[in-house]
Design a binder for these strands. Structure first.
Lengths: 156, 156
DNA sequence: TTGATATAGATAGTGAAGCTATGTAAACTA
DNA sequence: TAGTTTACATAGCTTCACTATCTATATCAA
């Protein structure tokens, strides 16, 4: 097997494993009574890492179409988890920033998620943990290249 | 930071990274003109690994509700990618098995997926690859524990 | 043996989250 | 300053989940 083939096989396995993991999380969190969607947390996570973004840039960073993000942002505004800041440079746009309440909600969701997963993953060795960390880092850096547009921070 | 906290943080990061990866794949494959859903390939993947399963067991293994799997199986039968084999022990049920065409389709989808990803992940070191492999293996084994019911192979 | 209960899967109806197409208002540009 | 482009919102649709329920078969108890 050539190197490229090894990479190919591992990548497809990774995709399948990720899909199973996400699907499992979706069910677990719903069974736990959480009303919010993964898309909601994904959006908040992006905002926390990037700082305030326009709707369009946020859509690109989250890998969804712009109208989808418009709807997500509306819901987040209703819950008080993000704020629309006027964009001084362009009256059509606004900067979407995560609020203190959003930061708290995200932290709490993460804690809940971790509590649910920990019983299943509590036996990880240090080496296992390193592998997971490295994978997260690899996915984060390489996915960025796939995104159709670059994330651009714009001062508000 | 305690060990448990380190595991918690890494697990939530892994979930977020997986969600982003899956979302990216969804977009890429659709842009490439693929009509089939990730759920379709997830189902075929489970069948390939497990051998023929009843609809209920397949639903459990795929982390979806039984009616969802009924619909998925209908679509797969229409495409000729799975076959319904009568269950000699129970006239209400049937065994669902992947067909040759299904095996081929799954292989082709994996190849296409790998080709799309390879440009972005072509620079992986051997150590990176090891980390990804280990992660896939960890997720596979630990997710199995989350599944509400065990996969049981039943002779037809 | 037969009536009651349990189980496997199908059907009906609903909701969430994504999409494309298009509308509107602001910003550019010739 | 009129035409074009851009940023976001709105409308309508599709897909994939779900819960609740139905039918047919299986199992069990009297």
């Amino acid at each position: 097997m050539t190197d490229a083939d090894a990479v190919r096989e591992t990548l497809t396995d990774l995709v399948q494993a990720s899909a199973r993991l996400v699907q499992a999380i979706r069910r677990i969190t719903r069974d736990n009574g959480s009303d919010e969607s993964i898309a909601t947390w994904r959006t908040l996570g992006v905002l926390q890492r990037s700082g305030p973004l326009r709707v369009g840039a946020l859509a690109d960073a989250s890998q969804v179409a712009q109208p989808t993000m418009t709807k997500l942002v509306s819901g987040l505004v209703d819950r008080g988890w993000v704020e629309r800041l006027p964009d001084s440079a362009d009256a059509r746009a606004s900067q979407i920033g995560i609020s203190d309440a959003g930061t708290t909600a995200l932290r709490e969701w993460r804690a809940e998620l971790a509590s649910v997963l920990l019983p299943y993953f509590g036996d990880l060795s240090a080496r296992d943990l390193d592998a997971l960390r490295r994978t997260v880092s690899l996915v984060d850096t390489h996915i960025a290249g796939i995104e159709p547009a670059q994330i651009q921070e714009v001062a508000s």
